[in-house]
């Protein structure tokens, strides 16, 4: 037990910041992120005997963080409905938004490496409702392994596709307003 405490003291020292950064990235709220990181360490402390050392401590802690994020998500958004597509499509399901047809001016590698563009993109991502933002971030963190994200978050594949669809429609509109300056 004393050993165990000693190891944890070192882990708290070494990994708190990395966990806090990831938690803040996923939850976008400082208080929620701090609470989550504390929960991660408590859960890790309790299940320390199951830590086999097959992975690094940080990988293990990040894994617990992901599970805790999924718990948080389920509790918080269980009863929320998805926002409708009315903003983008009319009642027959056709595009309302004429801007869709206009091409983006500089779809090239340069743009991807442009830090200003990256910043605009991050802002657009942060502007998504938290209900969508968390699964979207996890989807890309998991390198688009949809079944894993669904399992971890406890959401159906259909819901994941709908969340991705709505998020991408909104991200597109946000970039067109704030970067490409396409007029409607």
């Amino acid at each position: 037990m004393v050993d165990h405490l000693h190891i944890f003291d070192q882990w708290v020292e070494d990994y708190s910041e990395a966990l806090m950064r990831r938690a803040l990235y996923l939850l976008s709220d400082r208080q929620d992120a701090e609470d989550l990181v504390q929960d991660v360490f408590i859960a890790a402390f309790d299940s320390y005997p199951t830590f086999k050392g097959n992975s690094t401590p940080l990988t293990w802690l990040m894994h617990i963080l992901k599970n805790k994020t999924a718990d948080f998500y389920r509790k918080k958004y269980r009863n929320d409905n998805l926002i409708s597509l009315d903003y983008f499509f009319d009642e027959t399901g056709s595009w309302k938004d004429e801007a869709i047809i206009q091409e983006w001016s500089s779809e090239d590698q340069n743009l991807m490496d442009d830090p200003e563009f990256t910043t605009t993109m991050q802002h657009c991502l942060e502007d998504l409702p938290p209900k969508w933002k968390i699964p979207v971030k996890l989807y890309y963190l998991e390198e688009k392994k949809a079944p894993i994200v669904c399992q971890e978050m406890g959401i159906s594949p259909t819901n994941l596709w709908k969340i991705l669809q709505r998020s991408r429609l909104q991200l597109r509109a946000c970039l067109e307003n704030n970067w490409f300056h396409i007029q409607n």
Partner: peptide, 9 residues
């Protein structure tokens, strides 16, 4: 944060 975590543990 580290302090809070150590306290909790």
């Amino acid at each position: 944060l580290k302090g809070k975590i150590r306290e909790k543990i």
